[in-house]
């Protein structure tokens, strides 16, 4: 059952990702990306990481995608501006390199699996709910990275205002 649901989600995820890069309209691409994000949230939920799944929906499918749409509207690209020739070349290069990377990954993971179960680590303890694991790790062991996040957010606030705010508007 779990495997069946995983396969459904995985197929939906790949399908959505293909839509993201093939749809011509930027807005439709963004909506397809929302779909992919939601499916990924489903995948997280499937392995028991419920909190991460919720975050995935709140932050990525919600806030980040709103930002994406704003930027699309900000730029307002009506037609794709890349010339046809250029596109063919990049498309070719992308397909070749992407396939190569896929095979590399598949090869590495396969060899790791064949080496035995020792190489694969079970990340989420089944006995605990995911938020309990995250919070007890985040506020003790990873206290410093947690505090550092606020510094990062502060920098992001200053940077965004600095770049996006027009001057002399006081």
């Amino acid at each position: 059952m779990q495997l069946a649901i995983f396969i459904i989600f995985a197929i939906l995820c790949i399908f959505g990702s293909i839509l993201v890069i093939t749809l011509r309209s930027a807005v439709s691409s963004a909506i397809a990306l929302v779909f992919v994000m939601c499916v990924i949230a489903g995948l997280f939920a499937l392995v028991g990481a419920l909190f991460v799944a919720a975050l995935q929906v709140i932050v990525y499918a919600g806030a980040v995608m709103v930002l994406f749409l704003f930027i699309i509207m900000l730029l307002n690209l009506k037609e794709e501006l890349i010339s046809e020739d250029d596109k063919k070349f990049t498309r070719f290069l992308g397909i070749v390199l992407g396939t190569a990377f896929l095979f590399e990954l598949a090869f590495f993971v396969r060899t790791a699996l064949m080496r035995g179960s020792e190489a694969l680590y079970e990340p989420v303890p089944k006995t605990l709910s995911s938020i309990a694991v995250i919070s007890s790790e985040l506020f003790t062991k990873f206290l410093f990275p947690f505090e550092l996040t606020s510094v990062l957010l502060l920098i992001a606030i200053v940077g965004a205002i600095l770049l996006a705010k027009k001057k002399n508007e006081k």
């Binding site: 932050v59 704003f70 992001a156 965004a160 996006a164």
Partner: peptide
């Protein structure tokens, strides 16, 4: 075309 102030609000909301 949207004015950039929409973007500013959106990114501040996100942060």
């Amino acid at each position: 075309r949207f004015p950039i102030k929409f973007y500013l609000i959106a990114i501040l909301f996100l942060l």
